[in-house]
């Protein structure tokens, strides 16, 4: 029995070194070599090359000129250090009240948008960091963005349609629009909106 325990101890050390250190470190090395940009977070850059976030991680957009993402339950909204869904079930009063408030806010902020509202705009994603929207939910916001930027709605719609990704391989998942990519393109084509600053972004949702 003591012999078996000794074997167990040695096996613990060997497997830990092999699968707990060697494997992840070798993977890190190979990933850095082959796909460095992906391995380090697919960072998105603004017009001057500064990092403005990650293509894959949603961020708070609360001002009218920007395409806005879904409600987020991650911290105070899109906080990557606290990824989470709302975990509210179908008989939750909190969920219903939140949706009622979001509908009221969306109608107020989007007086020209058609009814009904696409439901991904009032439902919190699973991660709280969802970087994307359904194409319907993105196009729904076009009138507001167009008015805030003072450009024709068609041009906003064109940007969104251009940025719409089809299902992977034609049948996997859902068609979608990356919110940050659309906003970077909007800024590039129509200039940065004014005023933009921390005060405008303070809204937490």
């Amino acid at each position: 029995m003591r012999k078996e325990l000794l074997i167990a101890l040695r096996a613990t050390v060997v497997t830990l070194l092999l699968t707990g250190l060697l494997y992840p470190l070798a993977t890190t090395g190979a990933a850095e070599l082959l796909f460095s940009e992906r391995a380090n977070g697919s960072l998105a850059r603004g017009d001057t090359g500064q990092v403005v976030g990650s293509e894959l991680i949603g961020q708070v957009f609360a001002t009218p000129p920007y395409l806005q993402g879904r409600p987020s339950a991650a911290g105070n909204g899109y906080d990557p250090t606290a990824s989470s869904g709302s975990n509210l079930g179908p008989t939750s009063k909190k969920l219903r009240d939140r949706a009622i408030a979001d509908v009221a806010r969306l109608r107020k902020e989007n007086p020209d948008a058609p009814m009904p509202i696409p439901d991904d705009l009032v439902t919190a994603s699973a991660s709280g960091l969802d970087p994307e929207l359904s194409p319907e939910a993105a196009l729904w916001q076009a009138p507001r963005i167009a008015r805030a930027r003072g450009v024709a709605e068609d041009r906003i719609r064109a940007v969104i349609e251009n940025r719409t990704e089809a299902r992977d391989l034609g049948f996997l998942g859902e068609p979608r629009v990356n919110v940050l990519e659309v906003n970077l393109t909007l800024d590039q084509q129509f200039g940065k909106p004014h005023p933009a600053g921390p005060t405008a972004a303070a809204g937490t949702r």
Binding site: L43, F61, P80, L180, A200, A201
Partner: peptide, 8 residues
């Protein structure tokens, strides 16, 4: 883009 801080 909106000038807020985010920690990736």
């Amino acid at each position: 883009l909106e000038g807020a801080k985010q920690t990736l």
